[in-house]
């Protein structure tokens, strides 16, 4: 084994307001293969401490494949060597990774495959102007058996990590709602992995 020499970590700095031409990519929220019949959609809003929508947050998602694999896969986007642009995903593979920005109304959505019962959540990493460091949370998909686990993590506040079946406008099978409150009474539980 290598010597356990501790190097000091490079500090985090805010993503700032101007990442929009560099980090988002076409199809960033289309994690599920094209036309997959088992796909689910998770959507929601990001709110600040006054309950106002956050229009410039960037969210990343990482999850296990439905078969439990955490190996991931390349191909979240494909670069076009001819034009220097983006070709999007190939529509077949499952990379387990997504990245979307919020719109002017603070809204975002991803379409993905349900995570496995052994790890029934999407890991969520949120970046925004004003945050010196990104925030981790989890979106446990309702009905996959993770309700006990999120209570174990954070008690009653663990409910803030539950992506619930959408009951409001547009409610349909396979549509889940996951709002993120950065601050305040409804503040989402954020996670620290040590």
């Amino acid at each position: 084994m290598p010597e356990p020499v501790a190097f000091d970590p490079t500090p985090s700095q805010t993503v700032g307001p101007f990442y929009g031409y560099a980090l988002p990519f076409p199809g960033g929220g289309e994690i599920a293969p094209t036309g997959h019949p088992g796909a689910i959609t998770i959507h929601g809003y990001v709110y600040d401490g006054h309950g106002e929508p956050v229009p410039d947050a960037l969210l990343e998602f990482w999850q296990a494949a439905p078969d439990g694999s955490l190996a991931g896969g390349a191909g979240s986007w494909r670069r076009d060597a001819a034009s220097g642009g983006f070709l999007g995903r190939d529509g077949i593979g499952f990379t387990g990774f997504g990245r979307v920005g919020t719109g002017a109304d603070g809204h975002w959505s991803v379409r993905t495959l349900p995570p496995p019962p052994a790890a029934p959540y999407l890991a969520v990493c949120l970046f925004a102007r004003g945050l010196s460091r990104h925030l981790f949370t989890r979106a446990y998909v309702e009905g996959l058996g993770g309700e006990g686990e999120l209570k174990g993590l954070a008690g009653e506040r663990g409910e803030t990590m539950l992506a619930r079946r959408e009951s409001g406008a547009g409610a349909r099978e396979g549509l889940f709602r996951f709002d993120i409150h950065l601050q305040g009474e409804k503040e989402t539980v954020f996670l620290d992995f040590g």
Binding site: T14, D48, G49, H50, E52, V54, W62, Q63, A64, L70, A71, G72, G73, A74, S76, T95, G96, F97, P115, A118, A119, Y121, A123, A128, R129, G130, L131, S132, L135, F136, L153, A154, L182, Q183, G184, E187, T188, V189, F190, L191, D192, F193, G194
Partner: peptide, 28 residues
């Protein structure tokens, strides 16, 4: 810029789960 954005509560420490999804990551 962080006044209304930085969470007011301490993050919850997740430890002891070797199967945590976050201990693995996307590949490119």
């Amino acid at each position: 810029s962080g006044a209304l954005r930085e969470p007011s509560r301490a993050p919850v420490l997740v430890g002891g789960d070797p199967e945590a999804v976050e201990l693995y990551g996307p590949v490119f």
